[in-house]
Structure formats: C-alpha cells, structure tokens
Design a protein around this nucleic acid. Structure first.
Length: 376
DNA sequence: CCCAGCATTTTATGCTGTAT
DNA sequence: ATACAGCATAAAATGCTGGG
C-alpha cells in the first residue's frame, strides 16, 4: 500500500528512527497503526485555521499511555491484564490539550470503525473492549510488529508521535490566535501599552498574516501625511495625499500584489525574503513594473540590496540586465525602517488611527476564526 | 457509570461557468 | 488545456441528551 506523504510524515519517521535507528521507513511500512496515525496527522502543519480532530488520536494515546505506565512493553503479560476502566481513560483524555470536551465515541466505536475503513483487510482493530466488565485494552498485535525477522514494540514511539502532533497543533494555535485576540481588544488598552504591543509584533518570526496587517496600518498612516501636486498644466495643480489600499484579503491573496498606492501607482509586496526570480521572472525580456518590498527582516536594507545584486549577477551576468533588476525594486522597507515610520506616525499623534486600522483589518481577516476558538 | 442515537458544526469533494 | 471562484453536496467531527 502506498503511504500518504505529508509534512508530518517526516516527523513520524524521525521519531521512529530514534527508537529503531535507520528502520523508520520500514517500520512505517509494516505497521498499520502507524499508517493510520500518519493519515490522521495531516492537519499538523495546516495552520491554525483547520481543526485538530483529536478524539481518535487520544483514544489510542490514553491506552498506550496506560500500557507504558504499567510497563507492559517490558514484560510479556498484557494477556493477563484486567484492562482499564472506561472513566479512567475518559478522564485522562479530557486532561490533554484540546481534549476537555471529548466524549465516549472514539473509545466505544469510532476509532475501530475508522481504522477498519482504512484497513478493511486487517485482522485487527486497535481497541479491544469487554462489554461485560467495561474494561479496555489496546490491541497488542498492532503494537508488537515484526520487522526483518525481529519483533519490536512501537508503544513508546506511538506515544511520542501523538505528543509531537499535539505540540505542533498547540504551537500553531498559541502563536497565532493569541496575537489575533490581542489585536482585537487592543483599543481598550492604554495607548502606550497598545503601542508597545505593536512594536513587539515587528519582529522576523511573527506570523506572516499578522505582519502584513501591521505593516499596512503603519504605512497607510505614514503616507497619509504626504501629498503631491499634479495637474494637466503647470499652473493648475491639484494637491493629493498619498493613500495606500489593500488589494484583497491576506488569506485569499497568494502571489498577488498586497498594497497599491494612489495617486502614484506604487505597488507594495510584503515578503519574508526577496527572491529575485519569483517576482521578476522574465526581466530579461520585458520591462517590469517596479515594486516596493516590505521585508520581514531586520537585516540592513543595504545588505538586502547587495544580496539582490549578487543573485541577479549570478543569474544574468550582463550588467545592463542586472541594472534593470535593481531598477525594478523601487524601495526596500525592512523592520527597523517600519519601526522608524511608526515612530514618526506616533510623533504626529496618529497612533490611535494605526491601532484602529489594525483592529479593523484583524476583524476582517480573523474574526470568523476567532469566534470558533473563543468557545474553547 | 457507561453507552449510543440523533443534532449540529466543519471540512472535503465534486460540479459548472468564466477566463486565460 | 488549465485554473479557479462560487456553489451544492457528501462526509467527518463534535456536541447534547437520555436511557440502561
């Protein structure tokens, strides 16, 4: 059977390799239980938007944990074990992260049913239960497997894998959601505290969506103070302030231009790093529209530009083309520069406006997602 | 205490018209 | 051919409730 490959699969194999050096891959191939877990951990790196679905994971987890606690992986008498009481298992499930509202279904029925669905030909189901005594066991046949003529016990690895999955989910949840919630209530805080919070967001490892919103709010207000004069003849001039527009929802906008400025028509792109090839694919053939990059880094602007120059030189050699590359980068704004501009906005007493904008944008972006989490 | 039916909420998948 | 937004539908996950 072909094994589904996804982000977390690597992690699973890595954990297996810890216990059984260089056999990780083979073990995954032999173990239906591990394959099941592999299928059920697809959501690990899918970001904070998707729901975890931990019920079946935890059903396995609490049984494996009981198995390990009582050292059955070291002895050979699980056959004689009286089994675990249902309420003990359920209580433990509910102690685990995101498990507070779990119910009986996984243990009673659903884990086994789902397992059968994925492995219709398997002789075993993961959970064994005695309806008379209400006791539960793990199916040891799925825990003790034979690889290369040797019997191994994967109980500890199974527990570690589920732990790793929980950690991955929790990190995504914490980092992201906490910021979003904070951004939604930020107005109610004292202005100085709110400002400090925003400063704290301006760092390289912040979530990209959060960074985009914060940079937009700061830049919008920064440019709002500047105006230009234009007109159809030199004696009739209009004064117009620079306005920055967001071109779409952060989530929905992959690859597109993030902000546009009127009336100058500047394009802004928020990125982690400037990858020349990505934005100026065919620059050698066509003239490219200049872009201002807002880069989520603290590296000095000059060194970003140098790196850019290097990349371009390596790629194209010809000086004229390299120059066109650099010309297509209208401006680079890094985190320190963003911070400067934020300061100058604050000096004009416009901090509140920036915060209002952040709250507004956060609502548009994150509200549906927060409502869900708020219940937890 | 334990269990399962039914309801509700979320997510995955398929279909279709529009546009490139 | 390919890509995809918008919608409809199927399937899964989760929650409530009441009975043995």
């Amino acid at each position: 059977m072909a094994i589904v490959q996804h982000e977390f699969t690597k992690k699973i194999i890595e954990i297996l390799n810890c216990y059984f050096p260089s056999q990780g891959n083979a073990i995954l191939n032999y173990s239906e239980l591990l394959q099941y877990l592999n299928i059920k951990t697809k959501a690990a790196n899918r970001g904070s938007k998707s729901r975890a679905g931990l019920a079946n994971h935890y059903a396995i987890y609490v049984l494996v944990e009981d198995y390990l606690n009582k050292k059955f992986h070291l002895q050979n008498n699980y056959e004689d074990y009286e089994g675990v009481q249902f309420s003990v298992l359920l209580r433990r499930q509910r102690e685990l992260p995101f498990g507070s509202k779990l119910q009986n279904h996984a243990l009673n029925h659903r884990l086994n049913e789902e397992f059968k669905k994925y492995f219709p030909t398997s002789v075993y189901v993961p959970i064994i239960r005695d309806v008379k005594t209400n006791r539960y066991w793990l199916n040891e046949n799925l825990i003790k497997i034979i690889v290369d003529y040797t019997q191994i016990n994967i109980a500890q690895a199974v527990k570690d894998i589920i732990d790793a999955y929980i950690t991955a989910r929790q990190e995504a949840f914490d980092e992201f959601i906490v910021y979003c919630q904070e951004m939604l209530v930020i107005q109610q805080q004292e202005l100085t505290r709110a400002i400090e919070f925003i400063r704290g967001l301006l760092r390289p490892n912040i979530d990209a969506r959060v960074f985009e919103i914060v940079s937009y709010a700061i830049l919008k207000e920064y440019y709002a103070d500047q105006h230009i004069y234009w007109g159809w003849s030199s004696d009739v001039l209009n004064a117009e302030y620079l306005t920055l527009y967001k071109t779409g929802r952060t989530n929905a906008n992959d690859g597109g231009i993030d902000f546009v400025m009127k009336p100058l028509g500047r394009f802004f792109q928020v990125t982690e790093t400037i990858d020349v090839g990505k934005y100026f694919l065919d620059i050698d053939k066509v003239q490219r529209y200049p872009i201002t990059f807002v880069v989520k880094t603290e590296q000095p602007i000059q060194s970003i530009l140098n790196k850019l120059m290097e990349q371009a030189t390596m790629r194209y050699k010809v000086k004229a083309i390299v120059r066109r590359y650099i010309e297509a980068v209208e401006e680079v704004i890094n985190i320190p520069e963003l911070m400067n501009r934020f300061d100058s906005v604050l000096e004009r007493g416009r901090g509140t406006v920036v915060i209002e904008e952040i709250v507004l944008q956060s609502r548009v972006e994150f509200n549906p997602l927060l409502l869900d989490k708020e219940v937890k």
